Amino acid sequence: MTTTSSGGGSEHPTADREIVISRTISAPRELVFEAYTQVRHLSRWWGPEGFSTTTRSFEFRVGGIWDFVMHGPDGTDYQEWITWREIVPPERIALLHGESRDDPNAFESVLAFEPIGDETRIVMRTVFPTKELRDEAVEKYHAIEGGEQTLGNLAAYVAELTRNDTGRNETTPNGAES
């Protein structure tokens, strides 16, 4: 269900600086894209297991920002900053992610939302400025496991949305729609 690649191949010039994580989600691409791009959804699933998110500001447009804090299960707060660089609904998002607007260690991510019948394959390709920063993210911050958990949270949240939506459209015993 989840595939990861932590780089290391020589076929791509950025391979030693990148992390690639993908997951197939049982929901239409438009819904998965919406859950990833609307602030009302993000706080419900964003982050690894045990984390919560508080948004300080959010503007989903090219050049817009998402300024937020991730709260770790141990009580540690992580300042986060995302600048949206490219948005092609519902296919692709490119972003720059760091601790602040001018973070020299910020990394670039490109997310692709690929339709596969009634499902969506999301591929998250992250490229760090250096191999050392990538290795630190993997070893110290468990970036691969955290990314897999985050996409797992997204899949569970979208499944919940899909169930709730289906429940509202079912017919009640007296023939009326609920």
Results as ranks from 00 to 15, higher is better:
residue 36 Y to N: 10
residue 128 F to R: 00
residue 20 V to S: 01
residue 35 A to W: 00
residue 162 T to H: 00
residue 99 E to W: 11
residue 173 P to H: 06
residue 140 K to M: 09
residue 65 I to R: 07
residue 72 G to M: 10
residue 7 G to W: 05
residue 71 H to T: 04
residue 44 R to W: 00
residue 114 E to C: 08
residue 32 V to E: 01
residue 99 E to A: 14
residue 163 R to H: 08
residue 171 T to K: 13
residue 115 P to Y: 04
residue 18 E to S: 12
residue 13 P to R: 07
residue 173 P to N: 06
residue 6 S to L: 15
residue 90 P to F: 10
residue 85 R to L: 15
residue 116 I to M: 13
residue 83 T to L: 12
residue 166 T to W: 02
residue 91 E to T: 11
residue 74 D to Y: 07
residue 124 M to S: 11
residue 118 D to T: 06
residue 24 T to R: 12
residue 103 D to N: 04
residue 119 E to A: 10
residue 3 T to A: 15
residue 27 A to G: 10
residue 169 N to V: 07
residue 176 A to G: 08
residue 101 R to F: 06
residue 35 A to Q: 03
residue 124 M to H: 07
residue 168 R to P: 06
residue 172 T to A: 07
residue 116 I to T: 07
residue 37 T to W: 01
residue 79 Q to K: 15
residue 144 I to L: 07
residue 111 L to R: 08
residue 144 I to Q: 13
residue 78 Y to W: 13
residue 32 V to T: 12
residue 145 E to P: 03
residue 121 R to Q: 11
residue 90 P to A: 09
residue 133 L to I: 10
residue 69 V to M: 01
residue 37 T to H: 03
residue 99 E to G: 13
residue 102 D to V: 11
residue 30 E to M: 05
residue 84 W to V: 14
residue 88 V to G: 00
residue 175 G to D: 04
residue 27 A to H: 01
residue 147 G to N: 11
residue 162 T to K: 08
residue 68 F to R: 00
residue 116 I to S: 11
residue 48 P to H: 05
residue 111 L to F: 12
residue 5 S to R: 14
residue 68 F to E: 05
residue 133 L to K: 05
residue 134 R to N: 02
residue 123 V to M: 06
residue 94 A to C: 13
residue 98 G to H: 08
residue 144 I to K: 10
residue 30 E to L: 04
residue 175 G to Y: 08
residue 114 E to H: 08
residue 38 Q to T: 15
residue 111 L to A: 14
residue 3 T to E: 12
residue 170 E to F: 05
residue 17 R to D: 00
residue 68 F to V: 00
residue 76 T to P: 00
residue 108 E to V: 10
residue 113 F to H: 02
residue 2 T to R: 14
residue 17 R to I: 03
residue 113 F to Y: 07
residue 164 N to L: 13
residue 103 D to S: 02
residue 85 R to K: 15
residue 141 Y to A: 06
residue 43 S to A: 09
residue 30 E to G: 08
residue 74 D to C: 11
residue 12 H to E: 12
residue 5 S to Y: 15
residue 46 W to C: 01
residue 115 P to N: 03
residue 10 S to D: 08
residue 80 E to N: 15
residue 178 S to D: 07
residue 105 N to E: 13
residue 83 T to E: 15
residue 47 G to K: 02
residue 91 E to R: 15
residue 72 G to S: 04
residue 72 G to Q: 03
residue 85 R to G: 12
residue 124 M to E: 09
residue 50 G to R: 07
residue 166 T to P: 00
residue 101 R to Q: 14
residue 24 T to I: 10
residue 66 W to M: 03
residue 43 S to Q: 09
residue 149 Q to N: 06
residue 148 E to R: 14
residue 20 V to C: 10
residue 67 D to K: 01
residue 175 G to Q: 07
residue 73 P to V: 05
residue 17 R to L: 02
residue 23 R to L: 07
residue 45 W to H: 03
residue 67 D to S: 03
residue 176 A to C: 04
residue 78 Y to L: 09
residue 7 G to L: 11
residue 92 R to G: 06
residue 154 L to Y: 08
residue 149 Q to Y: 04
residue 14 T to S: 14
residue 45 W to M: 03
